[in-house]
Nucleic acid binder design. Structure first.
Lengths: 193, 193
DNA sequence: CCTACCGATCGGTAGG
DNA sequence: CCTACCGATCGGTAGG
């Protein structure tokens, strides 16, 4: 009875690749079955539905992001340090599964209700926690007083969330170094000062 | 004979909204027909195929981005000024049609060959032109010497390209101001210096 | 712009 | 995990 569990995970992992490559709606269960070398109908002995796979991928990633930020918020460091570490940890979580991260970001809108609503709440909550860090940095005088926090935080997440689409750890820098450089760019900018 | 042209544009505009909201693959021609108050079959007297609409949207936007960058490159200003103006103009082009911009960014992958290949070439070309501006800024000493130009330019485009998904000009700052702030954040960072 | 319709493909089930 | 199959929906065409 070890097989069913790991086989289910294998199905989900292959589905993640397929959803990333073709998009959720354009990826068929027959495509997925072919990747696994089985018949389409056989998939349903491992999973309940196509959307169950998407739900698993999206909510598992959400839980990981949340947990990483929990740890960062507890740290007794300055706001700019907190932001830097938060960015680095977010990158680390994505780097652990770039495929699932891409699905999380691009395909969550295909969740049906009430899951979609729940997902969006988790996401806005996560974003707001980062926004509070930026606001703290403005109050303490670490960040510029005039910055638009909503714009800043959305720009931050845009940069972070697209990373899984172009980053490949093989022929590039390591995730830790990527996170460090990304944080440096967003906090300190490109310009010499 | 004025009707056919504007009606076709109307079909494309409605399709853009639908593709943005549901994604290209999940948006059906019957959905589109319903939005226009006609039968699905009637769409084909205005357009040749579903993909023709996507092609029009993607390549029209690409042409606008290209034209805006052409103008910026001709300017006799410093690299950091060129980057700032390039960002502001990119935002302006997007703001002119946020819906088409969102489709351009999120749905282009559903183009079939050889259009997909052509589109990706246009896009990599555009990105490389921005990369050269950043490299110029490093040579002239305006930007930090150690920055990873590929990472920088991808971060830049991530920030820019997600904008159509969260920005709405009604209850927020104007496009020009958004472009200015976005450029400032990416070039100068959040930190006070 | 409509009615009528087509072949292909979809997610999923029954029963083994 | 398979064979056999279902109802629904897809993009698109013929002919008016």
């Amino acid at each position: 009875m070890i097989t069913p569990i790991s086989r289910k995970k294998q199905v989900i992992r292959m589905a993640a690749e397929l959803f990333k490559d073709k998009g959720y709606a354009a990826a068929s269960m027959r495509d997925l079955a072919q990747k696994l070398g089985i018949e389409a109908a056989s998939l349903y002995s491992h999973i309940k539905s196509k959307e169950e796979i998407l739900r698993t991928l999206c909510f598992d990633m959400a839980a990981e992001f949340r947990a990483s930020l929990d740890a960062v918020e507890k740290m007794k460091v300055s706001a700019s340090e907190k932001l830097r570490i938060g960015i680095e940890e977010h990158v680390k979580v994505m780097a652990r599964d770039l495929t699932a991260s891409a699905v999380f970001m691009n395909e969550h809108r295909h969740l049906s209700q009430p899951y979609l609503r729940e997902f969006l709440l988790l996401r806005i909550n996560y974003i707001n926690r980062f926004k509070k860090i930026i606001e703290e940095g403005i109050r303490t005088g670490e960040f510029k007083p005039h910055i638009d926090t909503k714009l800043s935080v959305m720009t931050l997440f845009s940069s972070l969330n697209w990373m899984p689409l172009w980053y490949s750890p093989e022929n590039s820098i390591k995730p830790e170094e990527l996170g460090r450089q990304l944080a440096d760019m967003l906090i300190n900018g490109l310009k010499k000062n």
